[in-house]
Amino acid sequence: MDLLLSLLTKFFIYAIFLFSLNNIVIGKTGYWAIGHIAYFAIGALFTGVITVIFHFTGYYIYLALFGSIIISIIFSLIPALSILRLRGDFFIFVSITINELIKLLVELISGPSGFSNIPRPPGLTTDLSLMCLSSIIFLILVLYASIFKYHNLNYITTIVRQNEELAKVMGINVYYIRSIFIILGCATAGAAGSLFAFYSNSTDPQRFNINEAVILFALCAFGGIDSIRGTIIASMFYVLILFVLESIFKGLFQIYTTNITSIIFGLILIFSINFFPQGIMGKRGL
């Protein structure tokens, strides 16, 4: 039972993160933010700083959840400003640079092995409650996305993404629309990072490196861009694959778990991006 609970918690946290990457940043703006995992790292780092360095206790720990959202918003201004001038490849370059920079920041603040023994706030001490909180956040996001489908802004983002010149002619502030969604996506990712820090009680800088970022990008391509079902299935797939490999390779062979996961997702990335761009559930290509 514990096992199922931990799997579900992991699934919801990854689903929140993938939602922010897949359905908000890439889906609504069309910018390929490979280094989006940096905001996940910021959320986890801020939670660690609040609880381990500043020793917040009791209900004050909830501040970490909100604080990480605010800090993510502040840091999201970097890519949001960059889209003023850059697009395409150069946005990918900026994204990679930010990812490496944040990874170094995490290493500088928390040391090479990260924070440990991050306490959970009262009310979130059991795995069940953490699972409930993350599932509620995820459900809110899904609800929001399904309502947003019929909102005017959705049509505007479609125009902006597909034909920028047309959007400009129509008097839409292209830059404003795009940066709003980038900031929103980063904030969501920060919340997911904070939840992850509570879940695993630690922040390991190695979790935020470029390979992990590529794997998470592969999940987006696998599920299908801008599709909620795709996000759900991709994150379920990721959690399950990790679990299956861990139960196959026990003891000494556990070395192979992460490596085989990376190989699988590398192949999925190359395959799906080139031959299968709409993914499993997606309606449109990358």
Partner: peptide, 21 residues
């Protein structure tokens, strides 16, 4: 029973939970 931690904290905790199970 040998478990591999890769010298990482969260993996060590996961392995301990696994062994405890």
């Amino acid at each position: 029973d040998f478990y591999n931690t890769s010298h990482k904290k969260d993996l060590a905790l996961n392995r301990m939970e696994e062994a405890s199970r």
